[in-house]
Each structure stands twice: as structure tokens, then as C-alpha cells.
């Protein structure tokens, strides 16, 4: 009797302790992530809000920060370079983003038609550029784009001068050699192509996954009713893929508006990016780290944040409801 009582008394705090542990266990498991996210995710965001109202030259240490109110924003909004780079970003986003989806959608449809085995192999192949380092890809393209020794110009020169093809491509000689990443007129396309090439596989994978959710019966029924392959794609696959398209396009908008690595490497650390090759992210890097104006750069990134917000908002407004699968 007394022994049982005693044991229950001693087990009381013990049990509370155990309950605390079992309840808090998930939080303990999550804590490394929360800690890291707090330090590297949340803190920088708030610090950047703070920073955008100050001037700060980082090499002068934290003590050199000075409150300037909205000056950084005024400076940014009236800066012609900011608008030029924003325009470049939008154009590159369009040049790389639109073809990405126009190619990825039919490609995914084709892959699904090909059956499982071929699909797995090919999807992996298309996905490979996405998992490869952006820097490595950009460097390879930089070499291929080289004016005098690059494989692209060499091939074009071959076509223009080889007797068999000269009649058709001879006119190219007028433009060759093309400075793919040096000339203002082509640089946006050169950068956009690399981005397109890298992300088309990623979108293809999203769309193949989307297509896999569509029941075969729908296709079969349509085939029995005499629908062609195009009709099956247009009237069955496309409408049912809407949520996937919506998701993939949103990612493309956000990703492309933040474009940094590809143009940075292709222009040799912005050496060639005189007017048309520089994106907003490149510009804010220059303001922050080359010009050592952290406050100005923080303001630019908030301006960029608002612009991305507007674009995504517009996209949601126009396509959101239907895109998310509603009416």
C-alpha cells in the first residue's frame, strides 16, 4: 500500500518531465532549422529594412551607419541605371521564361506518351542541367560564346564559308564574328538562352508529374470519340494541368526576376555588361560590394521586391482563380 503510494509520488514530477519531453520533442528536432532560418533568413530581412534607411560603408565598420530616412529610396527610384537594369531583367525573364514553358509543356506530353521506361531516362537527361552548378554551366557557355575561338562562331563561320552551304549562309559573314556576350544587341538573348536551357528540364519534370495525375480513361474516351493527339493535348491535358502551369510560371517569374549568376559569369563579373547585360540583382551587387553603399543596395532590393510582388500579384489576379483549379 505504502510502497505503491510512494512510487506514485515520486513518479509525479517524473511524469511531468516525461510529458514535457514528449511534447517538446518535435520542437527540439525543428530547432536547428529554426535557428538557422532565424539567423540567415529572418534576421537579414529585418536588418535590410533597417539598412535601407541608413547609409553604410561596410569597410568603415558598423559604427559608420547613419540614418538618412527615405534618401536611399529617392536615389534608387530616380536612378536611370536601376530602371535600365530592371528593363533588362524583364526582357531576359521574358526571353527565357516564355520559351521554357512553350517547350516544356509539349515535351512533357510527348514524354508521357512514350511510355514509362523512355520517360524516366529522358526526364533524367532533361533534368540534368538543372542539378548542375549554374557557375559551371555559365562558364561552359562563356567559352562556347567566345568571339574568336568559340564553337558557336566557328560553326557559323563554317556554314558561311563551306562551298556547299555558303549560298544559304554566306550573308552571315557580314556579322561574323559575333560577340555573343560583348555586343549590346545580342547579350540579352545569349544570357536568356542559357537560362532557358538550364530550366526547361525542371519545368518538364513538373509537367510530367502533372500529366501523370490525369487518368488514362479520359484519353481513352476521347480517342474513342475520334479526338486527335493535338485535341487530346489541347482539351484534356492543358485544362487539367492548370494548377501545375500556375505553380511553374510563378516560380519562373520569381526566379527570373532575381537572375544573377548567369549574367554575372557570362559577362566576366559584369566587365562586358555595359548597358544591356546587367540585371537588377547584378546592379545591386555592384552598388553594395563595388561601390560599398549598403544602404543604397538595400533600398534597391526592396524596390525589386515590390516589383516582383506587383508582377506576381498581377499574375495571380488574372490567372490565380482558374490557375489554382477553381472556376
Amino acid at each position: 500500500m505504502s510502497t505503491t503510494k510512494q512510487s506514485s509520488v515520486t513518479s509525479e514530477p517524473d511524469q511531468r518531465w516525461r510529458r514535457f519531453w514528449s511534447k517538446s520533442t518535435p520542437y527540439w528536432f525543428m530547432s536547428p532549422y529554426i535557428l538557422i532560418f532565424g539567423v540567415f533568413g529572418i534576421f537579414p530581412v529585418f536588418f535590410m529594412i533597417f539598412l535601407s534607411f541608413h547609409t553604410w560603408n561596410p569597410v568603415q565598420g558598423l559604427g559608420s551607419m547613419e540614418f538618412v530616412g527615405l534618401e536611399n529610396y529617392a536615389l534608387g527610384l530616380t536612378d536611370p541605371t536601376l530602371w535600365q537594369t530592371l528593363w533588362n531583367t524583364i526582357l531576359m525573364a521574358l526571353y527565357s521564361g516564355v520559351p521554357q514553358h512553350l517547350v516544356a509543356l509539349p515535351l512533357a506530353f510527348l514524354l508521357v506518351q512514350l511510355g514509362k521506361r523512355a520517360r524516366h531516362w529522358l526526364t533524367t537527361a532533361y533534368f540534368l542541367p538543372y542539378v548542375t552548378s549554374t557557375i559551371a554551366i555559365s562558364m561552359i557557355f562563356y567559352i562556347m560564346y567566345s568571339r574568336d575561338s568559340g564553337i558557336i562562331n566557328q560553326a557559323l563561320m563554317g556554314l558561311a564559308n563551306w562551298p556547299v552551304t555558303a549560298w544559304a549562309f554566306g550573308w552571315l559573314n557580314h556579322f561574323l564574328p559575333i560577340g555573343w556576350v560583348q555586343e549590346n544587341s545580342v547579350i540579352r538573348y545569349s544570357v536568356a538562352f542559357v537560362v532557358f536551357w538550364k530550366y526547361v528540364g525542371f519545368n518538364t519534370v513538373i509537367y510530367t508529374a502533372g500529366l501523370a495525375t490525369i487518368s488514362d480513361e479520359l484519353y481513352e474516351a476521347a480517342t474513342m470519340d475520334g479526338a486527335s493527339a493535338w485535341q487530346r493535348f489541347r482539351h484534356i491535358a492543358l485544362p487539367l494541368l492548370r494548377p501545375f502551369i500556375f505553380f511553374a510560371v510563378t516560380l519562373t517569374i520569381i526566379g527570373n526576376m532575381n537572375l544573377f549568376d548567369e549574367p554575372y559569369v557570362l559577362t566576366r563579373g559584369l566587365q562586358f555588361a555595359s548597358t544591356n547585360g546587367m540585371t537588377v540583382s547584378n546592379y545591386l551587387y555592384r552598388v553594395a560590394w563595388e561601390w560599398l553603399d549598403m544602404g543604397g543596395a538595400a533600398a534597391i532590393s526592396w524596390i525589386l521586391f515590390v516589383v516582383i510582388g506587383i508582377f506576381t500579384g498581377l499574375y495571380f489576379w488574372f490567372f490565380g482563380r482558374r490557375g489554382l483549379g477553381g472556376d
Binding site: N57, P58, V59, Q60, G61, L62, S64, W289, L292
Partner: peptide, 30 residues
């Protein structure tokens, strides 16, 4: 080096500075 001066830690005891950067570094107080 810019990051080291900004945060006040991590720089070597002796640092090499290129002429192109010396102008923006020497008035830093670092």
C-alpha cells in the same frame, strides 16, 4: 577583406591591398 572590415573580425594580421582598392580602404578606420 570588405566583409572582414565590416564585421571587425576574420582578417589576417597583414593584408595585401591592390592599388585599385586602396583608396576606398585607407579611410575606413579599419
Amino acid at each position: 577583406l570588405k566583409t572582414n572590415l565590416a564585421t571587425g573580425s576574420g582578417a589576417g594580421d597583414v593584408v595585401l591591398v591592390d592599388r585599385g582598392f586602396v583608396g576606398s580602404f585607407i579611410n575606413s578606420g579599419g
